[in-house]
């Protein structure tokens, strides 16, 4: 494949994803809503992901604290460790790590599930039986990811901060009250709100990419694997791109 064809394919893919997104907004938003399936997906996507997200968040908070500590001790500002860790977790580490874990777990599962349904022609069967597959399968999943990732991020931040509190207490002693006060004293709405808003986009990107890849998978069982894999890779990349955009936008809005 020459570079031109690759580039053409890339543009084609981008265009298709854009169409798919537009289709979600045109078809998925409109009633009737598949509420039962939405709640079911929310349960699977949100609740089932919590242990994994919680574990990674806890470890991340603990490790980040222990890693930051020596350099802060060098500067003689060890007392500012909770402030540093709190800001890092709430602003960046929490949302991005959670979203990446989420992409790995949910993006791949959506891609594989929808891909296998596509390959085994279940989606076509649904169309025949009068159920709109896009509304039933895609819209519920995308909405679920969009709504669940912020909640997961908030819970993940909380668990991560608890991990950081333990991390501070490994080498020195601080009361939970003091740690809590220090963290929240340094936090502002301009730290928390952009972080939560961007996770909505992360979740949306994971849902859309996963659904697109699954919905458009071909070539039998091999195609299911490819769609699952590319769903994770693309959604992870999308998360970083959105993160970059988010930081630029908050900077422009003067919230940073």
């Amino acid at each position: 494949m020459s570079l031109v064809i690759r580039f053409k394919n890339f543009l084609d893919e981008t265009g298709n994803i854009a169409r798919f997104t537009a289709r979600f907004f045109s078809v998925g938003i409109k009633p009737r809503y598949e509420n039962k399936e939405l709640f079911n997906q929310c349960y699977i996507i949100g609740y089932r992901s919590l242990p994994l997200v919680g574990l990674t968040a806890f470890i991340m908070g603990l490790v980040l604290t222990m890693q930051l500590r020596p350099s802060l001790v060098d500067y003689g500002v060890e007392s500012q460790l909770p402030v540093m860790v709190g800001l890092a977790i709430v602003r960046e580490i929490g949302p991005v790590i959670t979203a990446l874990i989420f992409a790995g777990k949910i993006g791949s599962s959506i891609g594989a599930e929808l891909g296998s349904m596509k390959v085994t022609e279940q989606i076509d069967a649904m169309t025949v039986s009068g159920i709109k597959p896009f509304k039933y399968l895609v819209a519920t999943r995308v909405l679920a990811t969009t709504l669940m990732l912020p909640l997961l991020t908030i819970l993940g931040d909380a668990i991560s901060l608890f991990g950081a509190y333990l991390g501070v207490n490994i080498r020195s002693v601080t009361s939970f009250d003091l740690f809590f006060l220090q963290v929240f004293k340094s936090l502002d709405f301009s730290d928390v709100l952009p972080a939560i808003i961007k996770t909505l986009f992360f979740g949306f990107a994971v849902g859309i990419v996963g659904c697109y890849k699954g919905f458009n998978s071909t070539k039998g069982t091999q195609g299911v694997g490819i769609s699952a894999n590319s769903a994770v890779v693309l959604s992870s990349v999308m998360i970083f791109i959105i993160d970059l955009l988010a930081v630029q936008i908050t900077e422009l809005m003067g919230l940073n």
């Binding site: 709640f39 079911n40 929310c42 349960y43 949100g46 609740y47 919590l50 912020p150 909640l151 997961l152 908030i154 819970l155 909380a158 929240f184 936090l187 502002d188 709405f189 928390v192 939560i196």
Partner: peptide, 24 residues
Amino acid sequence: NNIKLGAFVLSALVLMIFAFFIIG
């Protein structure tokens, strides 16, 4: 499952509101 989901969503929302309140 719905109860679990509700607990999950509520806990996250409560945490968020609590954080907003503290920051506020």
